[in-house]
């Protein structure tokens, strides 16, 4: 699985072999945007949303913070069919069987099933 990831990742960037060791280039502006978010700058405001949100984070994610979930929950309020979940044992990519993947899929299934229901 790790080999598939490395092979595909390197193949996805035609410039990867021009560097030593081979690497892929990922646009970097997200770093500053998240530095600002971490200091409390709201680049977007959940209070502007009228649509439902499913917010999930892994309990062991190194990127998002528990406070992100709490703040969004506060801003969205309880009235808009939004859902919030902390996935036990989940890490950043939530892609490993047994590390929160099944719980994440279950959350998405329930959430999208509710969206998909035709409105009467």
């Amino acid at each position: 699985m790790a080999q598939a990831y490395v092979t595909l990742a390197l193949a996805s960037d035609p410039t990867s072999e021009s560097r030593t060791p081979p690497s892929i280039r990922i646009p970097g502006a997200f770093r500053k945007e998240h530095y600002l978010l971490s200091e409390g700058q709201k680049l977007w405001d959940a209070r502007d949303l009228k649509l439902p949100v499913l917010y999930m984070r892994g309990s062991r994610d190194h990127w998002s913070r528990p406070e992100d979930l709490d703040a969004m929950k506060r801003d969205l309020g309880a009235t808009r069919a939004s859902k919030f979940a902390t996935i036990p044992n989940g890490t950043h990519f939530l892609d490993r069987p047994g590390h929160g993947r099944d719980e994440m899929l279950k959350q998405i299934q329930e959430f999208t099933a509710a969206i998909n229901k035709p409105k009467k």
């Binding site: 949100v53 999930m56 969206i115």
Partner: peptide, 14 residues
């Protein structure tokens, strides 16, 4: 129709 966010940060000083 809806938004699904995974391990995303939000603007909060923490």
């Amino acid at each position: 129709a809806a938004l699904v966010l995974l391990n995303s940060m939000y603007g909060v000083d923490a």
